[in-house]
């Protein structure tokens, strides 16, 4: 059976700890990828994976990524909600990995909403 490389995991843990101390627990933004049945069927998992990889490559250790259930707008999935700290949440619809990448670069990093992919500003109920 494949053994976990504990030494490697410990190294990453220590690195994560150091960067967490540097940013003093403050997050730049939170991304919620909608992961209901509809979202998953429409490609939400691929969007989440690609987003996590882009965040890692760009070393954006102050961006939190999480998931939620269906928001009730199944026909517009995949969807994600971006909450830049101190700003109202923005909901993006009909996502692809390319659109998500543009949202990461333009909205999360530079703070400018990508209007052509945005549905609305505000929160929703999930689960």
């Amino acid at each position: 059976m494949k053994k976990l490389k504990i030494g490697d995991l410990e190294k990453i843990r220590d690195k994560v700890r150091r960067t967490a101390v540097l940013r003093q627990g403050k997050a730049r933004a939170k991304v919620t990828v909608h992961m209901g049945t509809c979202g998953i069927a429409a490609g939400a998992r691929e969007i989440l994976s690609s987003l996590l990889e882009d965040i890692r490559k760009k070393k954006l250790d102050d961006v939190i990524v999480t998931t939620s259930g269906c928001a009730g707008l199944c026909s517009r999935e995949p969807m994600a909600t971006i909450e830049v700290t101190g700003k109202p949440p923005v909901k993006y619809v009909d996502l692809t990995t390319e659109k998500m990448r543009k949202i990461l670069n333009q909205h999360i990093i530079k703070g400018t909403i990508v209007n052509e992919y945005a549905l609305a500003v505000g929160s929703e109920r999930t689960h």
Binding site: L9, I12, R13, R17, D61
Partner: peptide, 15 residues
């Protein structure tokens, strides 16, 4: 192994 570090950290998930 992670102790106080959260498992849903991007670097940890990637590993």
């Amino acid at each position: 192994i992670l102790s106080d570090v959260e498992i849903n950290n991007v670097e940890i998930i990637s590993f």
